[in-house]
């Protein structure tokens, strides 16, 4: 227990609920139908980018990965622990690692249309797959670092993620339902953003709400939190690209 302790206990596996379950029926219907889900635009662009030869190597993602089928369940296993680099890597970073090492192409900017599109296309191949705990050697340390950040009070409002997402989920924060805070829909289309957004964007939104200092975009902290969120969501099914209010 950390100083200033919380009542927070992790949500037991059989009580985990996707943010989907508390959405209004219209918003759920939008997610359920590819024709109505605004994220489909990004998925289609992502598919085109997946097949496009890029960079000095003149290779497409599909050239290396033999079509999209091998991407099945991949997003349900990210972030992964990259043993060679001794660091956790999320899907977004993996896409840019492939661009650099395999395509000899410049990285795509964080939150850019093309990066979100590729991510949405890859993640869509995992729809319906169950998130399982990451048992890679090295992942444990990252999960524990994320767990610590999740339970630590931060910012001028002195709140922790756990106080909202473990202790008060299902209640109303100024009229908005507080979800359990699961990562199973990312990247996702938020009606409030009127755009697709990454997990990093969501985390920065919650941190700003706490009046906490944001870490730099590429900081390890975000990936550690994402690692922990995935372990905390084990048992839930992937919904990417989801729709949220």
């Amino acid at each position: 227990m950390w100083i200033g302790g919380a009542l927070a206990d992790e949500i037991p596996r059989d009580q985990r609920r996707s943010g989907y379950e508390t959405m209004r029926p219209e918003t759920r219907a939008m997610q359920d139908s590819d024709a109505d889900n605004p994220a489909t635009l990004w998925v289609l662009d992502g598919e085109a980018l997946w097949n496009k030869r890029e960079g000095a190597a003149g290779k497409s993602c599909a050239d290396c990965h033999a079509g999209a089928a091998p991407m099945k369940a991949v997003a349900a296993r990210f972030p992964r622990f990259d043993a060679a680099r001794a660091t956790p890597v999320d899907l977004e970073q993996q896409i840019n690692i492939c661009r650099r090492d395999r395509q000899n192409a410049p990285p795509l900017a964080a939150e850019s249309h093309d990066l979100l599109a590729l991510e949405a296309f890859v993640a869509k191949q995992s729809r319906g797959d169950t998130i399982e705990p990451n048992r890679e050697p090295g992942a444990k340390e990252s999960i524990e670092a994320g767990r610590k950040l999740f339970n630590e009070r931060r910012g001028q409002l002195n709140l922790s993620c756990a106080q909202c997402h473990d202790d008060n989920w299902g209640k109303s924060l100024g009229g908005a339902n507080i979800p359990q805070g699961h990562p199973n829909g990312y990247p996702l289309y938020r009606l409030e953003w009127q755009s697709l957004g990454s997990m990093g964007r969501r985390l920065r939104n919650c941190l700003s709400g706490m009046r906490a200092e944001l870490w730099p975009r590429d900081a390890r902290e975000y990936v550690d939190i994402e690692m922990y969120l995935m372990s905390r969501a084990a048992g839930l099914k992937m919904e990417s690209p989801a729709v949220r209010p």
């Binding site: 630590e152 009070r153 931060r154 910012g155 001028q156 700003s208 009046r211 906490a212 200092e213």
Partner: peptide, 9 residues
Amino acid sequence: GLTGVAKSY
């Protein structure tokens, strides 16, 4: 005694 407060605050 607060942690990680945004610069403007």
